[in-house]
Structure formats: structure tokens, C-alpha cells
Simulated assay, not measured.
Amino acid sequence: MMNEELIYGEIGRRIREAREENKLTQEDLGKLVGLTRTSITNIERGKQKIPIDSLYYFAKNLNVNVFSLLPNEGFLLSNVELPGNEEELQQFTPDVLNFAKKVYANSKKGEGES
């Protein structure tokens, strides 16, 4: 699932940035949230899923709002590529393109569930 990889990759990137801003090592953060350094490494690389309740521990120990660790819809839509010629797509407004990306992403998700 490409969206899932993007989501966990972006969460990991945001956790790493917050950890570095707090001048914590991966081992330090692991101790604070009850995980190993290896788990922190994997989370920061987007290779390990992180339960929602754990996000709150990360946010608390990194002194950030939990929502700052989550990618927004704009990030997810920016990674959706619509089929077609780039030149043709440029004629549409950003709102129309974002709507089309949502519809297209949902249709692709539905195909994977069959």
C-alpha cells in the first residue's frame, strides 16, 4: 500500500525532526516511550507501524502537539499522481485537481480490496 508507506514515512520523519530539535538520541527517546533504539530507528524510517496511543507518548515526550506528527491531507494528495498528460492537468484549478486526486485515490483503494 503506497499511501500507508507514505503516511508512516512522514510520521517517522516528523518524529525524527522533533527528536533532533529536543537533542535526544534514538536511545533516549526509546527509554522515554518504552521502546528499543532499533524500534525508534524503524519508526523514523517508516518501516515500523506506530499505534495511535503511542503517538501520544511520543508527542508528550517530544513536547509537540500530537497532530504535528501526523501528515495532513494536503501531504497525502500531493503524492497522488493522476493519469494523463501533465500539460492537460495544468488547465485545472488546484481545488479541482485535489478533488480529482481524492476520487482517484479512493478508486485505487477500492481496486485493492477486490
Rank of each mutant, 00 (worst) to 15 (best):
S39Y: 15
L62Y: 07
R14C: 12
E111N: 04
Y8I: 04
E44C: 12
I15V: 15
V80P: 01
I52Q: 00
L82E: 05
T25Y: 06
I7N: 00
I15K: 10
S39E: 11
E20K: 10
A18C: 05
E113P: 11
A100H: 00
K49Y: 09
N42A: 15
N106V: 04
K31I: 02
V103P: 14
V64K: 13
Q48Y: 11
E113M: 15
K60D: 07
E4V: 05
V33W: 03
L29V: 08
L69D: 04
T25L: 09
L77E: 12
I52H: 01
N22V: 00
A18P: 00
L70D: 04
N79M: 13
T41Y: 13
V80S: 04
K109C: 07
L35Q: 09
L32N: 10
L97W: 06
S68V: 13
K109V: 12
K31N: 15
E10G: 03
Q90N: 15
G30D: 02
E27R: 12
L24T: 12
E4P: 08
P71K: 10
V80C: 01
G84F: 07
K101R: 06
Q48G: 09
K49N: 08
L89E: 14
A100R: 00
E27G: 07
E44P: 06
Q90R: 13
G74W: 05
T41N: 14
G74M: 12
K109S: 11
L24D: 10
A59R: 05
N98F: 14
S54A: 03
L89K: 11
L76D: 07
I11T: 07
K108Q: 15
L77S: 09
L32F: 14
N42W: 03
K109Y: 08
E27C: 02
L77A: 00
E88P: 02
V96A: 12
L97G: 08
G74A: 09
G110N: 15
K23P: 11
R13W: 10
E27T: 04
F67R: 14
N85D: 12
M1L: 03
E87N: 14
G12S: 04
V66K: 13
Y57N: 01
G9Q: 14
N63T: 02
F99R: 10
K102T: 10
Q48K: 05
G34W: 12
K60Q: 11
K47D: 01
G46P: 08
A18G: 09
K49I: 11
G74N: 10
K101S: 03
Q48R: 12
L70Y: 00
L76K: 09
K108R: 06
N98W: 12
V103Y: 04
I7W: 01
Y57I: 00
A105W: 03
S68A: 13
K102H: 05
K47S: 02
S68C: 04
K60I: 01
D95Q: 13
I50E: 01
L32C: 07
D95T: 08
S114E: 14
N65T: 06
K101M: 03
K49G: 01
L6A: 11
F99Y: 14
K60N: 07
V80K: 05
L77M: 12
T25D: 07
N42V: 00
R37T: 02
M1C: 05
G84S: 00
Q90F: 08
Y8Q: 11
N79D: 09
R14A: 04
L76F: 03
L69M: 02
